[in-house]
Design a protein around this nucleic acid. Sequence first.
DNA 1: TTATTTTGTTAGATTACTCTAACAGAAATA
DNA 2: TATTTCTGTTAGAGTAATCTAACAAAATAA
Lengths: 260, 260
Amino acid sequence: MFDSKSGITGSLEDYLETIYIILGRSSVARVRDIAEELDVSPASVTPAMKRLAEKQLIRYSKRNYIELTEKGLFIARRTMTRHNLLSRFLSEILGIEREQAENDACSMEHFLSASSMERLAAFFEFLAACPELQILIDTGFGNCLEVGTEHLSRCSRSICPLMAHDNDENEMLELERLIDLEPGSSRRIARINAGKKTRRQLIDSGFIQGANVILIRPGDKNLPFIVKLDGYDQQLPVLIAECVLVHPDCKENGEQQNEE
Amino acid sequence: MFDSKSGITGSLEDYLETIYIILGRSSVARVRDIAEELDVSPASVTPAMKRLAEKQLIRYSKRNYIELTEKGLFIARRTMTRHNLLSRFLSEILGIEREQAENDACSMEHFLSASSMERLAAFFEFLAACPELQILIDTGFGNCLEVGTEHLSRCSRSICPLMAHDNDENEMLELERLIDLEPGSSRRIARINAGKKTRRQLIDSGFIQGANVILIRPGDKNLPFIVKLDGYDQQLPVLIAECVLVHPDCKENGEQQNEE
DNA sequence: TTATTTTGTTAGATTACTCTAACAGAAATA
DNA sequence: TATTTCTGTTAGAGTAATCTAACAAAATAA
């Protein structure tokens, strides 16, 4: 219920942030404005203001304008910054639609710890200092948005103007299909090569890059495929299992086996 | 209160996830195990099980073992996957300590939307397919963790084995200090060049890469510095304002002015 | 079999948040 | 001045989640 640092709830943080936003454009903040901005009833705002005043985060007296205290201002700004960092990460890096990114950020902002926030900020600084990274994300990852993941196998070659790919072929062709493995084989998932729907289904089930899969029983037309995914048994229709590509079983990937 | 998709609360999602984890290692799930795993009182578990059973997400009868239904299993797995994606992003990409990453992921997992989840999964796939990106993050961004941000100005040169940096000098030296600007100048923040404490203070206040700053009043020994940061007035002690570096005011950065 | 311990449930209280409906104060209008 | 409208507060209810303390059922030990 309580957020990571402030000692106040996410709801109260939202109120503070909203007051800050209103004061940024209107010189005074009234109950009505807050209710409207947050899309809650004015009757919900009054008790929230009382709670905030009790905690010395706002100055508030009945039927009067609302002001942030030093402490309240600090939390409001920090919350807003967390929101911005998350929303920018989701939209600028991951390529999520602005509105959706705002939405996600709105609820996650209350739980981003100080250290995560600091690192996320550092990531943006690094990105700005490192044009190569920006190119990779825009050209490579960004492209995958439109062209679909089918092209991902050729990404290293086509999108990366930064490096000469001499031994490209063997690097890329090493990816295997999960269904082609021998029973008992253990691998790391490389990617899901499927359309939106199947892809989402697999990801929801935990088939994400880096997850460990062990083939238990290869399926056929009637029997489903059985694998152990990160230690959990899972069944899959063969048609869906076909879309899972795994990294080769070489030494480089072997070191990822133990996470401790 | 409710999470993005399931129509159930974060708390109930946690219960489902926990049941899934317990069933992955113990063949049966009891109230006691769940209470222990989630660090809540057993008296809190019983009513939660009733709520879950009502929603057809578990099979539950008084004093009996608890089983997940098809639907419950799906939500449990999806929640766990979201957790893994977030926690891996925080630890593997941002370089947050494992425990802290787990913590943050625990609370944020309930709010990551389906599309963000999909894109985050795609990011890991892209990372695995693009060794250059991995190198940049490990060598460049990863290094910043230890050496501090002072070195960031030279990152492009020193860490990037991927590109020849002929015109390095002018690229890097273009960064200006915020305090050296003329009053009225508008720029984008590039990075914060300060120790941990000052850095955190500035970031908490919203001084993150990409934010727009307009210099209102240059400070001196007595008067504080005043800037407009993303539309909000802020005061800073001169000593702290010194640490803010901004991008040059060239055409390339000018295009970021409007976000719409 | 009886006693003890473990385990699970219930009752009752608390906190945080929301709502609707009724009401009160202030401002604007007639 | 009187009335209407806007704005804010209160009262009262509901939901979701948690807790402690008391109790009940089941399993284990004596």
